[in-house]
């Protein structure tokens, strides 16, 4: 197992947002997190790279093992964690810099200065995110000139440039048109050969299309987990069944 959640509880102030969550995430698989909005799935992935630390008054208990090491201890270096666990957000958020500078932002801040190494890293990352052919002639153009879908793939490239092992995606296509969504979903399939992907999605079709494993969240609890096929064809819990058949949202 790449990642193991053991009895994780999470609080925003008095709000008990995750309730004794247990989950195993497999290596080189795509795990989809589904559930109605406010169910805790976005909170969940923010615990995996400790992004919650930028929000005041949060508290977390339990343990999260990444390669059998608990990432919630103070001894676990935050920068190392986030290099290993990359994140792509709901709305594409490229920096107002050139395409090139966006990709090298992370590696440069982590100390990589060699120009040739940076150049080849840019090409490698953009190829992996299936953007290279579209932008190779305009690497010095502003990232903000790209289309929404291209921006999101640039954000994926930016993540890949720091050479992560896990990729977290918080509804990565919800702000995109169907064409761009399709491209990114195809990209997931190639990415999973080298990375473990955790994708939050509000679209059950997307979860069914792209993922290997699915976890269903409701009110901060994981109701059911299993292979995607099982969850969608043969849910064991009535609430899972209600959700995937659209009886509540």
């Amino acid at each position: 197992m790449k990642i193991i959640y053991n009895n994780v509880d999470f609080y925003y102030g008095n709000n008990h947002a995750l309730k004794s969550v247990n989950l195993n995430i497999e290596e080189n698989k795509i795990t989809a997190l589904i559930g109605p909005s406010g169910c805790g799935k976005s909170t969940f992935i923010r615990t995996l790279n400790r992004m919650y630390e930028h929000i005041p008054k949060t508290k977390i208990t339990g343990e999260i093992l990444l390669d059998n090491e608990n990432i919630l201890t103070d001894a676990y270096d935050l920068a190392e964690l986030r290099k290993k666990v990359g994140m792509v957000f709901q709305k594409p958020n490229p920096f107002p810099k050139s395409i090139y500078d966006n990709v090298i932002y992370g590696p440069k801040k982590h100390g990589l200065k060699n120009k040739d190494a940076l150049d080849s890293l840019v090409e490698k990352s953009l190829r992996k995110s299936a953007l290279w052919n579209e932008v190779k002639d305009k690497l010095n153009k502003s990232a903000l000139e790209l289309s929404g879908g291209q921006q999101q793939r640039l954000c994926i490239a930016r993540c890949l440039a720091v050479e992560p092992e896990v990729l977290l995606m918080d509804e990565p296509t919800s702000a995109l048109d169907p064409q761009s969504t399709l491209k990114i979903e195809e990209l997931f399939q190639t990415l999973k050969e080298s990375y473990s992907l955790v994708i939050v999605t509000h679209s059950m079709q997307q979860a069914a299309r792209v993922s290997d494993q699915t976890a269903f969240f409701l009110n901060g609890e994981i109701i059911e987990t299993g292979t995607t096929d099982d969850i969608f064809t043969n849910p064991k819990d009535q609430r899972t069944n209600d959700y995937i058949t659209g009886r509540f949202s």
Binding site: N49, A79, F89, K91, P96, C159
Partner: peptide
């Protein structure tokens, strides 16, 4: 979102 983008890369 820009700040989060940077923090998420492990940048201090």
């Amino acid at each position: 979102t820009l700040k989060e983008g940077s923090y998420a890369l492990g940048v201090s």
